[in-house]
Design a binder for these strands. Structure first.
Length: 582
RNA sequence: GCCCUGGUAGCUCAGUUGGAUAGAGCGUCCGCCUCCUAAGCGGAAGGCCACAGGUUCGAAUCCUGUUCAGGGCGCCA
């Protein structure tokens, strides 16, 4: 409809300019926007005000000349000039009513478009280290990423979803020795447990499992651990020492057994957790695979060959400051270990090598300092940094009423995503997570999410859907016939204010979806659905659908069927169910 | 010190390619079920859009400065 109106206006302006013998002014676009107030019609354009200055005319006069030349359209009843020079369009009933068959015929695909033209996008999100269960912060990234992926697919992109598994590196080694120490404890060797090791109960569970399967196989003589200075102040040194001893004493195979026991157990737990949350990945990408393929080394080599890497203090540094980062960054530490950054470079290059024209990363907001260095590396390796969009998600604070709940991964004191889901349910969790703009801090109130009352927007929307289903059920019980083709003939009977309002809101759905996708803002869907549910509930409370008069009844049923369809489509993108009864 | 975010009703927040009288929920107050689910609807009250300048037909929105709050600035991940 916007397109249609834009064409009307543009044609009129062109004709006007021709008559006056004026050239088309440069650099203007005719804007067609929805009005906020129904008394201003359905759409308005500010074309006259934009052009007035360049043409040296008063906006209202110009507007009048434009309106005079507008072609007749079956979708437009009337045009008015208002305020400083707005041109308001009042759409015909025909324009409004066409929407219902459009929605019903399109069904689940209503709102879809080919804006993305099948472009391949890779979206990577959550990617939490497999060193423990997901907590509520990860949940937000999961809900946001999954909804965004659905949104992008809805507007015609071919989006693949990926989880990057940090299954290499020091943190995983620390997990392994955490498990090992708990295991030794079970074997009767009581040793101090470093505070920076992983404290959670799940570590003991993994240790118990190993103990059950392997008994005392991984016990070593106590004196071998005498090299660890438990009084050592620098806990990082202490951990490194423990790792070294464990690797040496247990051998590669032994250490791998413990390492993998931890990795596999935790990873499958994460996988299951996300799956239950409706978050399904196309690919789980292993960091180890980058090392095994020598991909990381190749990238470092390429950077070296092109002079982007230098040696200082026995470490290798990447000159990221040449490409906008505030300082250079280490890729290989003085002890020969590659940093996570080195893997990250390789991983991002790898993404582009797989043929994605756009990649989206969703990171916690605390990682924002990493954007510059990753983009710098992409530039240095000849990739287009603008093809990477990094979206930051702020942390979520959890409240139980007024009480703020603690969050700390290492200490093991945190509420897991699983606990949250069990307490408030998947639907409420998915909805609440995306109800705020992602870069906003989110206060997640457990009490509110759980409340089965009108405080809770999730139930409010789902309730609208359930009510429609209930009406349809009643219709059958009362043996009222509903015949689609016939019903669509009677749509012109829908003249009530509430019906017009509902139609107007329904018609906004496709453009809302497109904007939400373009701006990466699924929260717009939440607000839209709230509006739509509100329009429906008002309508429901004011008018009856199952009335004696057959033609009006059928027309109304068509309208609420369209409404039901749009609620379903919106909720599906958010990963929230649309229950038939509540 | 530098860099991100943010400051809109009592509370939680929508609202940026500048548009007409700034919106919603919650909370408060007042109404609505012999009728398709009251998990609902209607109405009222509630605002210097942090502050000060600037840009223009027009600013919550764009620019500059100030201020307050949260976060980030490791050979950690």
């Amino acid at each position: 409809m916007k397109q249609h109106l834009r064409k009307l206006i543009t044609d009129s302006i062109n004709e006007l300019l021709q008559q006056k013998g004026l050239p088309l002014p440069q650099g203007y676009t005719v804007q067609i926007e929805r009005t906020r107030d129904a008394s201003h019609g359905d759409f308005f354009s500010n074309a006259a005000m934009i052009l007035a200055k360049q043409l040296g005319q008063k906006p209202r006069e110009l507007a009048a000349e434009i309106v005079d030349r507008l072609a007749v359209s079956e979708f437009v009843d009337n045009c008015e000039i208002a305020g400083p020079g707005f041109i308001n369009f009042f759409l015909s009933q025909k324009a409004h009513l066409q929407l219902i068959p459009d929605i019903i015929n399109a069904g689940d695909s209503f709102g879809q478009c080919d804006h993305g033209k099948g472009e391949a996008i890779l979206i990577e999100y959550v990617s939490a280290n497999p060193t423990g269960p997901l907590h509520i912060g990860h949940g937000r990234g999961a809900a946001y990423g999954a909804s965004l992926a659905n949104l992008l697919n809805t507007v015609g992109y071919d989006t693949k979803q990926e989880y990057y598994v940090n299954d290499a590196g020091r943190q995983m080694d620390i997990l392994a020795i955490s498990v090992w120490l708990r295991y030794l404890d079970l074997c009767g060797q009581q040793l101090p447990f470093p505070e920076k090791a992983y404290q959670g109960d799940y570590v003991r569970e993994i240790a118990a499992q190993i103990h059950q399967q392997h008994h005392d196989d991984f016990v070593i003589p106590l004196h071998e651990l005498s090299g660890v200075d438990w009084q050592q102040h620098d806990v990082e040194v202490q951990l490194d020492k423990l790792i070294a001893i464990a690797k040496q004493q247990l051998g590669d195979a032994g250490f791998r057994t413990i390492f993998n026991a931890g990795l596999n157990r935790i990873l499958s737990d994460i996988r299951e957790d996300l799956q239950e949350f409706g978050v399904i990945y196309d690919n789980w990408f292993s960091e180890q695979s980058l090392t095994e393929d020598n991909f990381v080394n190749n990238c470092i080599k390429r950077l070296q060959d092109s002079g982007h890497v230098y040696e200082k203090d026995k470490a290798l540094w990447f000159r990221s400051s040449e490409y906008g980062d505030e300082k250079d960054r280490v890729v290989v530490r003085d002890n020969g270990q590659k940093t996570y950054f080195a893997s990250d470079i390789a991983y991002h290059v790898n993404k582009f090598k797989r043929g994605f024209s756009k990649t989206i990363d969703i990171w916690g907001a605390d990682h924002h300092g990493y954007i510059a260095r990753v983009k710098a590396a992409l530039i240095a390796l000849g990739e287009n940094p603008d093809a990477l969009d990094v979206l930051l998600v702020q942390f979520a604070n959890l409240y139980r009423g007024k009480e703020k709940l603690p969050m700390s991964t290492r200490s093991g004191e945190f509420v897991t995503l699983r606990e949250l889901r069990q307490e408030v349910g998947n639907d409420a969790a998915r909805f609440f997570y995306v109800t705020r703009k992602s870069e906003q801090h989110l206060d997640f109130d457990l009490e509110l999410a759980k409340s089965q009352s009108n405080d809770n927007p999730v139930y409010y929307i789902q309730y609208a859907h359930a009510r429609i289903c209930s009406v349809l059920k009643q219709m059958q019980q009362r043996h009222y016939r509903y015949e689609q083709e016939q019903a669509l003939q009677y749509l012109n009977l829908l003249t009530e204010t509430h019906e017009k309002a509902l139609l107007a809101t329904l018609s906004r759905y496709p453009e809302m979806i497109l904007k939400a996708a373009e701006d990466y803002e699924p929260h717009l869907i939440c607000f839209y659905l709230r509006d739509l549910a509100n329009d429906f509930h008002s309508y429901y409370n004011t008018h009856h659908f199952l009335i004696e008069e057959s033609r009006l009844r059928q027309a109304r049923i068509s309208l609420i069927l369209a409404c039901k369809q749009v609620i379903c489509n919106g909720l599906r993108i958010l990963g929230v169910s649309a229950p038939e009864e509540m």
